[in-house]
Design a protein around this nucleic acid. Structure first.
Lengths: 206, 206
DNA sequence: GTCTATAGTTCGATAGAC
DNA sequence: GTCTATCGAACTATAGAC
């Protein structure tokens, strides 16, 4: 078995997890266990250092969780932006919405511990930390509202639906999958298709 | 101003909140602040007693939160059962599903601190507490699956949708409203109508 | 950049008086 | 049924050596 973690030849410390290493571990633990259940000692242990060493990289626990929350929205936002950007210019309303739903769900369920941690712990962190994350969230929400408004102007969406409410319903429904999604029961890709089908056409036989 | 809390004439303690009083306060605080942020001292203070007095009524914090979780499912289950029971026997599939959606949303947003606390903190409590709540949850889920299966057999629902997945999507979407519902922006009743419209018929113009 | 040691706080829980 | 008093554990955060 070849060793995958190559040791430096110099005298630099063997284990230098660094700020990003701490952050990656924190995001994963927050996603798995929630905010209150994850102490600095747990993060440190999982990162292979001592709790006090974390204070070299961050000034407080709040600073860590704030960084995780912001990175989580950035990741899902970038995922959606990318999915929309690669569409041909003549892409229809249905396809655009399907792409956005797929991007959000993939970021949450497959790609980013940061995005899933954000959804999982946002309601558990101190008010001040929530407030700090709000500007980043607003930007992502604006992206959705812009997409939905475009579809509505094109006549694809019903004229009387409230865009803000529709966005809250849609993102809320997608985020809820975190509580029960099981890759053994079907892929995130298949799930995103089902969500798009239901939201676009409903479940009634016609 | 007339005094609304009448003092007993006998020598019984003026303040006897009792087990139910502690439980009511606990449910409200859990709903508002989450599991980790609510200590026994906070519950006691809000109930007007000392933290140690709680141990006369409950053996541990886990016992309190377990009681809150079970009562929360019982409340929303009873709300849904009642809403279905009062329907005329010739009620159509659409109306039955609308009634169930309305009952779930009302229990969550208007009626029960226990039900909203359950949704809010289930993912935050220790595994053992979650496990203890599972049988009660399974019974409620079975009620939904029975309703959805009936609609599918009647031909009202599409034949190819997976009942379990549909139930998870539906309840997940409804539960997510807890994070953003604001009574100043519209009633729970109106919101439940919107959810039924979207799930039954989708959002596309037709 | 990580360590040891520890200060200071808050927590769940128990013992025993009334 | 509620109180006072307290224990032991776990937490965030700081100080200072290497």
């Amino acid at each position: 078995m070849a060793d995958t973690t190559v040791s430096k030849v110099s005298d630099t410390p063997r284990t230098s997890v660094g700020r990003d290493g701490v952050l990656n571990v924190a995001a994963r633990l927050f996603r798995e266990q929630g905010y209150g259940a994850v102490s600095l000692r747990k993060i440190a242990e999982a990162a292979g250092i001592k709790a006090s060493s974390i204070y070299y990289h961050f000034g407080s626990k709040d600073e860590i969780v704030a960084a995780v929350l912001d990175a989580g929205i950035e990741a899902v936002h970038e995922s959606m932006r990318q999915a929309i950007a690669v569409l041909p210019t003549d892409t229809g309303a249905e396809a655009a919405l399907r792409a956005a739903i797929g991007a959000h769900l993939r970021a949450l369920l497959e790609v980013s511990d940061y995005s899933s941690a954000n959804v999982r712990i946002f309601g558990q962190v101190p008010q001040s930390v929530r407030d700090a994350n709000l500007p980043t969230r607003r930007a992502y929400e604006a992206e959705w509202d812009a997409l939905l408004s475009r579809l509505q102007k094109n006549g694809a969406l019903q004229r009387d639906v409230d865009i803000r409410r529709l966005r809250l319903m849609l993102i809320g429904a997608l985020n809820a999958t975190l509580e029960w999604f099981d890759p053994d029961r079907g892929s995130a890709e298949a799930l995103s298709r089902t969500y798009a089908d239901v939201f676009l056409n409903g479940i009634l036989e016609r």
